[in-house]
């Protein structure tokens, strides 16, 4: 089961560190990362594999949202299925 993590907000240090720390703590593997910074506005998309995840999805989601609040970014995690359904024929 794979999911997409989106991180959006003002650029600062330690964004990837903070997000990947939570993922590692929950045994979630990062498969792909894309990011851009435009006019100080940071956007990152991670594709992660949750097959060995040690916590419940809702726990991971809450942890990511919490770290998002701490570093002032919007962090979402959504199952990959939604994006595949909407954007592929």
């Amino acid at each position: 089961m794979r999911a997409v993590v989106t991180v959006i907000g003002k650029d600062r240090t330690g964004i990837i560190y903070n997000v990947s720390k939570i993922l590692a703590e929950n045994s979630v593997n990062i498969e792909d990362i894309s990011q851009t910074v435009m006019h100080d506005f940071f956007t990152m998309i991670m594709l992660v594999d949750m097959s060995n995840m040690s916590a419940d999805f809702s726990v991971l989601k809450a942890a990511l949202e919490e770290v998002g609040e701490t570093i002032g970014m919007s962090i979402r995690i959504q199952h990959e299925d939604l994006f595949n359904a909407m954007h592929t024929i």
Partner: peptide, 16 residues
């Protein structure tokens, strides 16, 4: 995986 812009489009549709 869906393209970068597709992911952002979906997120924008839901959030905004």
């Amino acid at each position: 995986m869906a393209m970068f812009k597709d992911v952002l489009e979906t997120v924008r549709m839901i959030e905004k």
